[in-house]
């Protein structure tokens, strides 16, 4: 059997909100390592990888590896029924085609359980090798979300360019053009407000803003976002999940025709 219990259930609600618009159906892999997922969007332009390590849960039991295929919109509907302060338990028995979500209020005076049908999903799992990135940007996640939102009112694509001067986000469209430059700023009162740019080589890549905006749905999960870029590689946009793991989004670049 498989069972996990998360006292800070709101984390799981936020995780679902960060992936449900990008991916319709996905296989969750349950193993002794943790609860994980890898899925591509329907056009195979972006990929999301989630890992929530078993040690991060208050209780985690996985007798044998299990894959649970779920419709993420339906899963999100069920998790929306959990209160923000609720403790969430996910349970699945071997050989059944359902998963149970149990929500307990902090004072234990309300306990709900929701049963959801699992699905058989034929999904391709990609091997993503570890890579040394030419440029790594760490910045406040809210700032990155703001930049993506602002630039999408100007154009459909963003050019991200990292140089010694900083990181430049540019967009161009029918009404005009926009450039936003963020410089390294490590001398802030709070570390979550810092912008840190590690650059081995200058790098410039172009990406569809529609996907970037979808990634920023993960902003409530983490104060900081990490953007890793190399020429001719997908960008990796990573949000940490409160000491338990991460959500990483991979986005293939656009190239000149």
């Amino acid at each position: 059997m498989f069972e996990l219990r998360l006292v800070q259930g709101s984390l799981l609600k936020k995780v679902l909100e960060s992936i449900k618009d990008l991916v319709n159906d996905a296989n969750f892999d349950c193993s002794s390592t943790g609860f994980s997922l890898q899925a591509m969007d329907s056009s195979h332009v972006a990929l999301v990888a989630l890992l929530l390590r078993s040690e991060g849960f208050e209780h985690y039991r996985c007798d044998r590896n299990l894959t649970m295929g779920m419709n993420l919109a339906n899963m999100a509907k069920m998790l929306k029924c959990a209160g923000n302060d609720d403790i969430i338990t996910i349970k699945a028995d071997d050989g059944t085609d359902t998963v149970t979500f149990m929500f307990e209020s902090p004072s234990q005076d309300k306990i709900s359980d929701f049963e959801m049908k699992l699905m058989d999903i034929d999904s391709e799992h990609l091997g993503i090798p570890e890579a040394e990135y030419e440029a790594i940007i760490r910045m406040p996640s809210a700032e990155f979300a703001r930049i993506c939102r602002d630039l999408s009112s100007i154009g459909d694509t963003v050019v991200i360019s990292v140089t010694k001067e900083g990181v430049r986000f540019s967009a161009r469209g029918d009404i005009g053009a926009a450039n936003i430059v963020c410089r390294q700023n490590a001398t802030v009162d709070k570390p979550e407000d810092a912008t840190i740019i590690e650059m081995q080589e200058p790098v410039t890549l172009t990406f569809a803003l529609r996907y970037m905006n979808s990634f920023t749905k993960a902003t409530p999960l983490a104060e900081q976002v990490t953007i890793s870029m190399s020429s001719d590689l997908p960008v990796v946009v990573e949000y940490k999940v409160a000491g338990m793991g991460y959500i990483r989004y991979y986005l293939a670049p656009k190239i000149e025709e």
Partner: peptide, 14 residues
Amino acid sequence: PGVQLSITEFYRSS
């Protein structure tokens, strides 16, 4: 503008 590449062009099936 530009051609959108696919993620499967970069990473192999595992």
